[in-house]
Amino acid sequence: MICEICKKNEATIHIQEIINSQKKALHICQDCAAKKNAGNGMLNGLNLADILYNISSNINSGDGTGAAKPNEPVISHVPSITCGKCGWTTVNFSERGRLGCANCYTIFRDILSLALKNMHKGTMHVGKRPGAGNKGTNTAAIEIMKLQKKLEEHVMREEYEKAAETRDLIASLKNNNKTPKKQVKDK
C-alpha cells in the first residue's frame, strides 16, 4: 500500500488502529507520520470531525455496514438539534468538536454515544466521583461566590459602602436560597 500523503513511500502506519475505529483509516509512511506528528498532532489526537463524519454517514446510510461515504457533507445528514439551555447546535458541534454546556451531553446523546465508543476504552465512567458537597448546589450558590469575590475586592480597596451593599446582597440571596427548600420540604 502506498502512503496517502506523499504517494511515494510504502504506507506502514495505519491510523485506524490508533482511534480504535473500523471505519476511519489513513495509511501513511513513517516520514509523513513524523511530519504529521510534529505538526498538528492529529495523528495522536482524535480528529473529532472525522469521527462525526463517519457517524453521520453511518446513521443515514442505513445499510448497517458502517462504511463511510466520502465527500458527503456532514451536516445535511444529521438532524438539526439545538440545546435549549445554551443554544449550541449540531452545526456548532460538528464544526468545533466541542459542546456548549453540560446539558448538551443529554441533547446530543445519540451522536455522542457512537463517537465516544471510538474515542475511549469504555462508555461508562468508573473513576472518582465528586464529594457529597456536589449535590444540591445551584445557580444562587455560584452567584453568592461571585459576590463574595466582589466583597473581598471592595474590602481590599477600602470601599466600605460598596462592601456593605454587597454583604447585604449576599445575605438576602442566602435567605432566598433557603426559602424554596423549606417549601419543598413542607409539601
Binding site: 451531553y105 465512567h125 465528586p130 448546589t137
Partner: peptide, 17 residues
C-alpha cells in the same frame, strides 16, 4: 464547587475526548 457530573459519563467536559 458543584462540578458538572453525570452518573454514566462522569465529569462533563467541553470536548468529548
Amino acid at each position: 464547587l458543584p462540578f458538572a457530573f453525570d452518573e454514566t459519563l462522569g465529569y462533563l467536559t467541553s470536548c468529548p475526548t
